[in-house]
Amino acid sequence: MCLGIPGQIVEIIDAEKKLGKADVSGVKRVINLACIVDEDNPIQSTIGQWVLIHVGFAMSKIDEQEASRTLQLLNELGEAQREILEMELKQQ
């Protein structure tokens, strides 16, 4: 029930009702944008934005930088792990 799916906003349909269209894996669907627009983030600025969609609402913008930071950490962990493994192998 708490899951969501990433999609990219491609079009604003009704600025007043805060409705837009998102592309979710090639399928376009109408979604409500009320949770991601405010005075500082006008509705037009959301075009092209990746969002997390839950029960027909864009619930959060997905932060590209944070996503790559997380992946970076994962990479580093993988590297470190490989080094540990090599060390262990050498000791044997």
Binding site: M1, C2, N32, A34, C35, H54, V55, G56, F57, M59
Partner: peptide, 10 residues
């Protein structure tokens, strides 16, 4: 839980 509350409130 809270995840779905904004959608029903709106």
């Amino acid at each position: 839980f809270e995840t779905t509350m904004p959608s029903t409130a709106l």
